[in-house]
């Protein structure tokens, strides 16, 4: 059992002021088996009220609207979580996790690679073999891929970041009949958010991190799950104004 304190801040700076800015955030971690959120605080700047809801994948969403012109938007989350190592509970499978999604639809090359992999054992064992395969294939390289890079594209580049590792992993797992989903969250020792995968072993979900080639243990704080990055994006927004924007991220997870 360990207690993690986490801090995650995103700042978006617009070149020119924008207005009528509607946003949807997914930046609050829920309490889950094995992960008890002890306290959490969301702060927004400009400071506006927000509504809370759950989306179709069960994630917490925070939504609101900033009417007045503003040249930056910052949201920050701080809190602490008790990671008690409780295994996830058995739950029925939401079948969409069996099928390809927009970011994880394999092309010929990726399908061929996936079919050629010799996988043996239980789904949990197979998922680690898959994570090894992806890990072995990729060179971790920031800046080559972007938020819109698909699994097929990342596979052809053999380079990318956690999001790309995860998309390729998901494409392969689903191709081989293992239901799998994307997880976004925070990891101790990382300076920004992290992405990994969960596979369904017929009864419950189990975390596996292809970027680090290991099972996701109690140093991983889960925020959102979905078919791929698109369902789990921490922030989406639309606004009036043609400003270009730059974004900075600061994140810290420490053991107390």
């Amino acid at each position: 059992m360990k207690r993690l304190s986490f801090q995650y801040t995103i700042s978006i700076v617009f070149e020119w002021p924008v207005a009528d800015h509607a946003f949807l955030l997914r930046c609050l971690p829920p309490s889950l088996p094995g992960q008890r959120i002890l306290d959490v605080c969301l702060s927004l700047f400009p400071c506006v009220p927000y509504a809370l809801q759950r989306d179709a994948f069960g994630n917490l969403i925070e939504l609101g609207r900033i009417c007045a012109p503003h040249d930056s938007f910052t949201y920050g989350v701080t809190g602490s979580a008790l990671m008690d190592g409780t295994p996830t509970e058995p739950e029925p499978l939401f079948p969409v996790y069996r099928f390809p999604s927009a970011y994880t639809r394999p092309d010929c090359a990726l399908s061929e690679f996936g079919r050629s992999l010799p996988l043996t054992g239980s789904p949990a064992e197979m998922s680690l073999q898959l994570a090894q395969a992806v890990h072995g294939l990729f060179t971790y390289t920031p800046g080559i891929t972007g938020v819109k890079t698909t699994a097929a594209r990342a596979f052809s580049l053999r380079q990318g970041v956690c999001q790309d590792y995860t998309h390729v992993f998901l494409a392969l797992a689903r191709l081989r009949g293992i239901p799998a989903r994307y997880v976004s969250g925070l990891l101790t020792g990382e300076g920004s958010s992290h992405a990994w995968a969960e596979i369904y072993d017929g009864e419950r979900w189990m975390g596996v991190d292809p970027t680090h080639c290991r099972p996701a243990d109690d140093s991983y704080i889960r925020f959102n799950v979905g078919r791929d990055f698109d369902d789990c994006a921490m922030e989406r927004g639309v606004f009036h104004g043609g400003a270009s924007q730059s974004q900075s991220v600061a994140s810290r997870v420490t053991e107390q």
Partner: peptide, 22 residues
């Protein structure tokens, strides 16, 4: 709803789906 479906949509209403869900 550009915040729920295609993000590039200019003809939708941001967060309409959350109002609908509520």
């Amino acid at each position: 709803d550009p915040l729920c479906f295609l993000p590039d949509s200019l003809i939708g209403i941001p967060n309409l789906m959350t109002a609908y869900r509520a």
